[in-house]
Design a protein around this nucleic acid. Structure first.
Lengths: 101, 101
DNA sequence: CGGACAGTTTGATACCCGTCTATGTTGTTT
DNA sequence: AAACAACATAGACGGGTATCAAACTGTCCG
């Protein structure tokens, strides 16, 4: 995973509201946008913004169905992020090929 | 893990420079503050600020030895964070006992 | 077609925070 | 004690961003 995506994911996860939205999406296999708007105490515009960030970080997938949008968690990205996080803090050098330092 | 610490860790990990510092600390079993100041292109004051945040998120431990401070990674906290992250996005209800929804 | 609904985009505002300079504090050395 | 070194703290500044209201785009239905 490249550093740009890694940082983007970390930033996306750092906002409590945005993470709560992601958590809500993860709860079901697929979650309509309307449901999130109904359940959260923030404006629909703000939610749209957060969902765009989540999609930009490749953490959610969007499926359009007429005028409705359905979101689902991309567990592959989440797994890759966790693996990268563990790898970068494992104490082993990961970036280059030098293992003797 | 309580939500306050969870959020604090997520925010602490979100800044690239701060994460780089944490990564540097993780590289050795213990890392003196001076070494970080020498190796990073930011002011000593800023580094001190970041280290305080890292300690506040319980991600690093500080050992004072005279006028020197030595930092080490708290892998327990990192592991707990990763476990919490996975749990919150696993799709299972964790907060209450209802598993049928 | 026209209105109602779902979502996006835009512009503005306010707040958070990373960074700096300058100064303070604590420990060591001469 | 004075001076220096390692680190902490205070205040200020600038950039990023979460949030909102309002306007816009696209879709469905009569």
């Amino acid at each position: 995973m490249d550093s740009a995506l890694f940082t983007k994911i970390a930033k996306v996860l750092a906002d409590p509201q945005r993470f709560a939205i992601l958590q809500r999406i993860a709860k079901d296999s697929e979650c309509p946008c309307i449901k999130i708007v109904e359940e959260f105490p923030i404006t629909q515009a703000t939610i749209s913004h957060h969902l765009k960030e989540l999609a930009g970080a490749e953490l959610v997938e969007v499926r359009r169905e007429g005028k409705c949008a359905h979101f689902s968690l991309r567990r592959e990205t989440l797994d890759a992020y966790q693996a990268e996080l563990a790898a970068r803090l494992s104490g082993l050098s990961v970036g280059s090929g030098k293992t003797s330092e």
